[in-house]
Amino acid sequence: MPVEIMSDLPRQNCVTRFAPSPNGPLHLGHALSAFMNADMARENQGRFLLRIEDIDQTRCTPQFEQDIYDDLSWLGLTWEQPVRRQSQHFDDYRLALEKLVAMDLAYPAFLTRGEVKAIVKASEAGGTPWPRDPDGGALYPDSDKQRSSAERQSRLEANALFAWRLNMKNAIAQLDEPLFWDEFGSGQHQTIKADPAQWGDVVLSRSDAPSSYHLSVVVDDALQGITDVVRGMDLYHATAIHRLLQQLLSLPAPRYHHHRLILGNDGRKLSKSQGSTGLATLRAAGKTPSDIHRLVGL
């Protein structure tokens, strides 16, 4: 499995992007990804973009967004203006969702998180393991897909809360051939077979969010002309979902470069809750941008 970006292959018209969510402070892992995106664009006379992924309006704040700008500027990074903020482009994601609905590839899912947990628990209590995605999450049950049209319409007319989910079986049936993606994270070009089925019926939008990460990221990458997606290995397997959505929506497929993760003392990937690795905390402690380069292994 690829773990690092070392490729010296030429990138004509290279466009990269760093796309953090303003829901907490940036940490060393973010710094590594931002450096790598900026470096690839500079070394190939390309463009480096900054995207603010603020779909989640309950957790994302203007202060965290400003902190992102401050941290990246301190690191010496510059990016093209204007910055794309997802909260200003909900119509783009709505149009993509409507296309999938019109193709009968999405359905309203009414089960609450509690109901899903209860179904999974009952199944496993009876000795039947519940299928799980690569991140360990339980796949969504088939209950909503099995509802009659009348029952589904009745719930919609009653204004029941629901999420739109991708009908994975129907979506895969649309494909004429297997999906692959071009991976360069190991320094060599690898053709990786995508297996989106292992994710089940992924969320496309929720009642409290107009788009999911998976839907918005493929739409944004296409609209911004991203040629090279440089991101951490934690999103390696999710690339299968993105390739499927790109195919269904007739969007171009960028090249992918999945890089190593910065791990904490517990051996787990860093999170925004780990303040000791926050860039603002390190800056306040007297660290310099050169120190950050060293700490992330560059």
Rank of each mutant, 00 (worst) to 15 (best):
R51M: 05
R51E: 00
I52N: 00
E53W: 03
E53I: 02
D54E: 13
D56P: 05
D56H: 09
D56Q: 08
Q57H: 10
T58C: 04
R59F: 10
R59Y: 04
C60A: 09
T61A: 03
T61H: 10
T61K: 06
T61I: 10
P62F: 03
Q63Y: 04
Q63T: 13
Q63C: 03
F64M: 00
F64L: 02
E65Y: 01
E65N: 01
E65R: 04
Y69G: 05
Y69H: 15
Y69V: 06
D70Q: 14
D71K: 00
D71I: 08
D71R: 01
S73Q: 14
S73C: 04
W74R: 01
W74I: 14
L75P: 05
L75Y: 14
G76K: 10
L77D: 08
T78P: 04
T78R: 08
W79T: 06
W79D: 09
W79N: 11
E80C: 02
E80M: 09
Q81L: 10
P82R: 12
P82E: 09
V83E: 01
V83I: 09
R84G: 01
R85Y: 06
S87I: 12
S87Y: 13
Q88F: 09
Q88A: 08
Q88T: 02
H89E: 07
D91K: 07
D91V: 07
D91L: 09
D91P: 02
D92A: 11
D92Y: 14
D92E: 15
Y93A: 03
Y93E: 04
R94S: 06
R94N: 13
L95A: 08
L95H: 14
A96H: 09
L97G: 07
L97W: 14
E98V: 03
E98P: 06
E98A: 10
K99F: 01
L100D: 09
L100R: 05
V101M: 08
V101R: 12
A102K: 06
A102M: 08
M103I: 00
M103P: 00
M103G: 05
D104L: 10
D104V: 02
D104A: 12
A106F: 06
Y107W: 08
Y107Q: 06
Y107D: 03
P108C: 13
P108M: 13
A109D: 08
T112V: 01
R113K: 15
G114M: 01
V116D: 01
V116S: 01
V116G: 03
V116I: 15
V116L: 03
A118D: 09
I119C: 00
V120C: 02
V120M: 00
V120E: 01
K121R: 15
K121I: 08
K121V: 14
A122C: 07
S123K: 07
E124D: 11
E124Q: 11
A125N: 15
A125L: 13
G127Y: 07
T128P: 00
T128V: 13
T128A: 07
P129W: 12
P129Y: 13
P129G: 12
W130C: 10
W130S: 13
P131N: 11
R132P: 04
R132D: 11
